[in-house]
C-alpha cells in the first residue's frame, strides 16, 4: 500500500468515524495504533503511562474526527501529532526530575543520522533524513533530542552544559536550514 493510498483510506475512515461509525473507528485503530503507541512510548518511556496516553489519544481522535481536514494534514500526521502532544503533556505534568543519567550527558555530538537510516522508508522521510544529515551534527542531534525525547530547551541546555540561548539558536538555525534544504530539493 503506497503512502498516498493509505492516507486516502485513513481519511475515508476518519470521515466515517466523524459520523459515529464504530466499525470504522476500530479499523482506524488497527491501522494506526502501533505507530502512535511507538511515538508515545518513545517519549513517556513507561509502558503503563504510554497505554494511558494512547487511550486518551484515541478518545480524542474519536471526538475530534469531524475536525480533521485532509487539505491541512495527512491523517497519520494529524493523529501522530495529537499523540506526540499528549505524550509531551504527560511528560510536562511529571514532577521535575533528571531526564538522563549524568554519564549520558555531553553526547549530542556523538549522535548522527545513523540510528534513523535503517528504518527510513518513505520519500519524505528520506528527504528529511538527508536534510538533517547536512546540518552541523550538534544541531541535528539537538533537534532529534527535542523531537524524540520530548526534552525542553531548558533541560537539554542543562544536559549539554550550554546556555539556553545557544541551544535555542542551534535548534532554530537547524530547523530553518532544514526547511530551506527541503524547499530547494523540492524545486
Amino acid at each position: 500500500m503506497s503512502a498516498s493510498a493509505g492516507a486516502a483510506e485513513l481519511s475515508r475512515l476518519l470521515a466515517r468515524v466523524a459520523e459515529g461509525d464504530a466499525a470504522a473507528f476500530q479499523i482506524f485503530y488497527d491501522r494506526t495504533s502501533a505507530k502512535l503507541f511507538g511515538v508515545i512510548l518513545r517519549i513517556v518511556m513507561e509502558r503503563q503511562e504510554a497505554e494511558d496516553v494512547l487511550q486518551e489519544v484515541y478518545v480524542t481522535l474519536w471526538r475530534k474526527a469531524a475536525t480533521f481536514d485532509p487539505a491541512r494534514a495527512s491523517p497519520i500526521t494529524w493523529a501522530a501529532t495529537i499523540a506526540r502532544n499528549r505524550a509531551i503533556d504527560r511528560l510536562r505534568a511529571r514532577p521535575a526530575r533528571p531526564m538522563v543519567p549524568v554519564e549520558a550527558a555531553h553526547d549530542l555530538a556523538d549522535e548522527g543520522p545513523a540510528p534513523d537510516a535503517g528504518l527510513v522508508a518513505s520519500h519524505d522521510a528520506r528527504r528529511l533524513a538527508e536534510a538533517l544529515s547536512l546540518l552541523e551534527p550538534r544541531h541535528a542531534a539537538a533537534i532529534r533530542a527535542c523531537y524524540f525525547e520530548g526534552v525542553t530547551y531548558d533541560e537539554l541546555a542543562a544536559r549539554e552544559n550550554v546556555p539556553v540561548g545557544t541551544l535555542k539558536s542551534w535548534v532554530r538555525r537547524g530547523l530553518l536550514r532544514m526547511r530551506g534544504q527541503l524547499e530547494a530539493s523540492e524545486a
Partner: peptide
Amino acid sequence: LSPLDEAT
C-alpha cells in the same frame, strides 16, 4: 517534521 516518526 512528521516524517521523523517513521524512524520510531
